[in-house]
Amino acid sequence: MQEIRKIVLTGGPCAGKTTAMSWVQNAFTEKGYKVLFVPETATELISGGVAPWTCGSNVEYQTIQMRLQKFKEDMFEQAARTMPDQKILIVCDRGELDNRAYMTQEEFDSILEETGWNEVDLRDSYDAVFHLVTAAKGAEEFYTFGNNAARYETVEQARNLDNSFIAAWTGHPHLKVIDNSTDFEEKMMRLIKEISGFLGEPQPREVERKFLIEYPDIAELEKDPSCQKVDIIQTYLKANENEEVRVRQRGFDGNYIYFKTTKKNISDTQRIEMERRLNLKDYLRSLMEADPTRRPIRKTRYCMGYEGHYFEIDVYPFWDDKAIVDVELQDKNEEVIFPPCIKVIKEVTDDASYKNTELARI
């Protein structure tokens, strides 16, 4: 059966996004994918004379841009379904929520009200989001205006814009941030590795560390504009030994999407993980295969980025004194710098009793 995946490639100014497109094209064409690129909508509009400074207001411009972007993506998906290729990867040069970095909350809310869209649907309409960090954060000597005539941001402005892009996508179930901790070629290789892992291509590996933390200040988390709240119901299905299969409903305020995830452990800290989107009908059908020895897990997840890492804080209804935080790393020995709001009790990466599969046992 044909499999179509849609991802976003985003990032701050001078992050290597243009070069990354070539790497993605080459790498995944070799892996048998038909790779389609949805060009950056802002560049098309501005080069054609339609810009925030030529329209009546920023809200009017952003509404036009978001409508056009959505139309283009819909057309690419429609075209993909007509193609004979079995594996199709649609790569969006920026996605709908990148526009949030150029708007106030009030402006963004007014667009949602006018269009009838909601933030969860816009954000999670993409299967994965890959953010390339600007050279202005950690590779300042390579920050340049020479490869983009439209670039005008100072180093400090580039850093702030980069943070705004990450904040806009925070809460997405598969957001990966590719920083400048290595040279540029290795940065591109890490991007390809992350996309490969997401697509379930040969031996994708993920290093994850888990920590037991003090119960967080929920009011403070919900006031933090860079922190996103997600409600999750997770149901485990019957599976083979050394394999975990689950379906998940996630979203907020009545707007939900559905996933099926298969994980196969290859060590205590590494696993192969493959994930795909489900429609509501397939999700409900999957629930018929629920593992009778485990109850569904309900939790509220607070997602936030900090110091180049992506943290997921899970708060469970049956605990009022503790919670769990997960952080994904490139290497199991990588140092983790926690946000001030996280008070670590102990690491529980290797403690099976804190895994969701165990918490779900009846």
Rank of each mutant, 00 (worst) to 15 (best):
M1G: 15
M1F: 14
Q2M: 14
K6R: 14
V8Y: 00
T10A: 06
T10D: 11
G11L: 14
A15W: 06
T19R: 01
V24H: 00
N26C: 05
K31W: 04
G32H: 11
Y33P: 08
Y33C: 12
Y33D: 08
L36Q: 08
E40P: 04
A42D: 00
A42C: 08
L45C: 04
L45Y: 09
S47K: 07
G49F: 02
V50H: 04
A51H: 07
C55S: 12
V59N: 10
Q69G: 10
Q69W: 01
F71T: 13
F71I: 11
E73H: 03
M75N: 13
T82W: 12
T82M: 14
T82L: 15
M83V: 13
D85I: 05
I88Y: 00
G95D: 02
D98K: 02
N99C: 15
R100H: 12
Y102M: 13
M103T: 09
E106I: 15
E106G: 13
S110K: 07
E114K: 15
G116N: 08
G116R: 02
G116S: 09
E119I: 05
E119F: 09
E119R: 06
S125K: 04
L132Y: 05
F142L: 07
F142M: 07
Y143C: 04
Y143Q: 01
F145S: 06
G146V: 02
G146I: 00
N147R: 11
N148M: 09
N148P: 07
A149E: 15
A149R: 12
R151C: 10
A158I: 06
R159V: 10
L161V: 00
N163F: 06
W169T: 01
T170L: 00
T170V: 01
G171N: 02
N180H: 13
I192W: 00
I192S: 00
L199A: 07
G200Y: 08
E201L: 13
Q203K: 13
P204E: 05
E206W: 06
E206Y: 11
V207D: 00
K210F: 01
F211E: 00
L212C: 03
I213H: 01
E214L: 12
P216F: 02
I218F: 06
A219M: 11
L221N: 07
L221M: 09
E222W: 11
P225L: 08
I233L: 10
Q234H: 07
N240G: 11
E241I: 12
R246G: 05
R250P: 01
G251A: 06
N255G: 05
Y258T: 03
F259M: 11
K260S: 01
T262D: 03
T262E: 09
K263P: 06
K263F: 05
K264H: 14
S267Y: 08
M274T: 15
M274R: 10
R277F: 08
L280G: 02
D282T: 13
Y283P: 06
L284P: 00
R285I: 09
M288A: 14
R295H: 15
R295C: 11
R298N: 14
K299H: 13
Y302I: 02
E307S: 15
Y316L: 09
W319G: 05
K322I: 10
A323C: 10
I324L: 08
I324H: 02
I324G: 00
Q330F: 02
I337A: 14
K343D: 08
K343W: 08
K343T: 07
V344Q: 11
V344M: 06
V348D: 04
T349A: 05
D350S: 08
E358F: 12
L359A: 06
I362L: 15
